[in-house]
């Protein structure tokens, strides 16, 4: 349970981090909160040749909101999102602070970072699900400068993203307010990774749904949107029947894996139950 040897570099700016990433090559990894990476290194599931410690790049620790939406700096801790007290942001994007308690535990949330979670791209990670749910954009900086990646193009496979080897995630942007949104999950022990997690967001006009997003975690190699469930809701009058139909459509659409934590059928069952719970809370919230 000890990591293999690596070179350690501490940087204070994005420019320094990117130039080191470029110089050290593909075996170098960025170290932010380290709450996933260091555990994987202790198991030697990850053996980077070098770590570039960005945890003290203070310029990336912020949450700002204005009429263009919400911006979260990559090094903002989970705990800072959980304690978000900006009145505008916490009304329009309240699903972020409301969902943070599902992430690990107090110590993990104090150290782990929002950007680190997105870049790690775990298929059951709450921030990855909510980024997809809320149509986020990811800002990546590389030697050629900055580019903005729509979240739908960002997660490319299990723990894989669209980031190039010499690129660094610096910010996540969410433009559209989704006051009616919620996330629910199930795990055997609170704070463990979810066996299945579901997030739902709806735009409402009276009791009429004008747009919907359903995202499931833990059933595929990445977090996924379920168009079949969204289309049940969009344009419909929202009542218990519509919610039940959407949940059933989500359960039919997913193709979950089997492992020690549960069979595919069990995960499909959880998908239906959790989509229903997420929709119930999403619709009730902000009424």
């Amino acid at each position: 349970m000890k990591p293999s040897a690596f070179e350690y570099h501490r940087v204070r700016s994005v420019d320094e981090a990117v130039s080191l990433l470029t110089r050290l090559g593909g075996d170098a990894k960025l170290l932010a909160g380290g709450q996933s990476l260091v555990g994987m290194m202790n198991f030697r599931l990850a053996r980077p040749s070098a770590l570039i410690d960005i945890s003290l790049v203070d310029a990336l620790n912020y949450i700002t909101s204005n009429e263009e939406g919400l911006r979260i700096g990559a090094l903002t801790s989970h705990r800072a999102v959980e304690r978000l007290d900006d009145p505008v942001a916490s009304e329009r994007f309240s699903v972020l602070p409301r969902s943070a308690h599902w992430i690990g535990h107090y110590a993990i949330r104090s150290v782990g970072t929002f950007g680190g979670s997105i870049a790690h791209a775990d298929p059951a990670a709450e921030w990855c699900m909510l980024a997809l749910l809320l149509d986020a954009e990811v800002v990546a900086v590389g030697p050629q400068g900055e580019r903005v990646v729509p979240i739908g193009d960002f997660f490319t496979g299990f723990l894989q993203t669209d980031l190039a080897e010499d690129e660094m995630l610096t910010e996540v942007r969410i433009r559209t307010a989704w006051p009616h949104a919620a996330l629910h999950e199930f795990s055997r022990r609170h704070g463990d990774f979810a066996i299945v997690a579901a997030a739902a967001a709806v735009q409402m006009s009276g009791d009429h749904c004008t747009d919907a997003r359903i995202v499931i975690g833990g059933v595929d190699s990445t977090v996924i949107r379920v168009a079949d469930a969204e289309s049940v809701l969009t344009g419909a009058t929202i009542n218990a029947e519509a919610i039940g139909e959407a949940a059933a459509a989500a359960a039919r659409a997913v193709d979950p894996p089997e492992d020690l934590n549960g069979s595919a059928a069990y995960r499909r069952h959880l998908t239906e139950v959790l989509v229903r719970r997420a929709l119930d809370e999403a619709i009730a919230h902000g009424e």
Partner: peptide
């Protein structure tokens, strides 16, 4: 609070 097994001394 931090888990000292998930952090390197050099950090």
């Amino acid at each position: 609070p931090a888990r000292s097994c998930l952090m390197f001394g050099v950090q």
